[in-house]
């Protein structure tokens, strides 16, 4: 029998606590202020790798953008190493944390500035294609949902052990599409429901 503390929704008002400096304009008169613990810009001065921008919208079952959503991302560095004690391989000489947080704005858009992660080890020693773990929180979500973001320009996707578990006709929901620009923009939309419902993972 598990004794863990149950999850509850982040509710509609998290922004002033969790993403106070960001895309959500919770304090239009500038009366209150608070600082971020976690940023949507993951780029540190010393980080190596290809700089990228990730942008997207989370849509509800009516295909309406969710404008009170919080997205968290967790990723490896360009060498495929996580800045975590759970990753025993020698850490790179970098301040890169690999963790970011963005609220959605009035139009339901979130955005991150980061670097493209490298391949990381997977089950049976098989490498996993570069990917980012994504957690989504919002009013109406009593617990976070997890998904993964893969990159449209990665040949390694074809052999990825997790993508391989996903039915072929739904794999596309996990692919962020490169739209170019400098740094290159990858668009990653999330659909909570509907024909294009994103694949969510129980992890």
């Amino acid at each position: 029998m598990s004794e863990i503390t149950p999850s509850q929704t982040v509710g509609p008002f998290f922004a002033y606590g969790l993403t106070p400096v960001g895309r959500c304009d919770w304090d239009p008169n500038g009366t209150y202020s608070w600082k971020n613990s976690v940023e949507s810009n993951l780029v540190t001065p010393d980080v190596s790798g290809t700089r990228i921008r990730i942008e997207g919208t989370v849509f509800d079952g009516d295909n309406k953008p969710i404008n009170d959503c919080m997205i968290e991302i967790w990723q490896a560095d360009a060498q495929g190493r996580y800045a975590s004690p759970g990753d025993n391989r020698s850490l790179p000489n970098t301040q890169f944390k690999g963790f970011g947080r963005s609220a959605t704005d009035k139009a339901g858009i979130f955005a991150f500035d980061t670097i493209k992660p490298g391949a990381v080890p997977g089950p049976g020693g098989k490498p996993q294609a570069p990917h980012i773990v994504v957690a989504i929180f919002s009013r109406g979500m009593l617990r976070q949902v997890y998904t993964r973001l893969y990159f449209s320009d990665e040949a390694a996707n074809a052999a990825d052990p997790v993508l391989g578990l996903v039915p072929a006709d739904r794999r596309g929901t996990l692919i962020a599409h490169k739209e170019g620009g400098e740094p290159p923009l990858y668009r990653f939309n999330v659909h909570m429901q509907g024909d294009n419902e994103t694949v969510f993972f129980e992890i």
């Binding site: 509800d60 079952g61 009516d62 969710i66 996580y82 759970g86 990753d87 990381v120 080890p121 997977g122 089950p123 996993q128 919002s138 009013r139 109406g140 979500m141 949902v145 052990p161 997790v162 578990l165 996903v166 909570m192 429901q193 419902e197 994103t198 694949v199 969510f200 993972f201 129980e202 992890i203």
Partner: peptide, 15 residues
């Protein structure tokens, strides 16, 4: 309108 309608996929815990 904000909850997944399809079953969540169980995946192995990787790094």
């Amino acid at each position: 309108k904000r909850s997944p309608t399809k079953p969540l996929m169980i995946i192995p815990h990787t790094l």
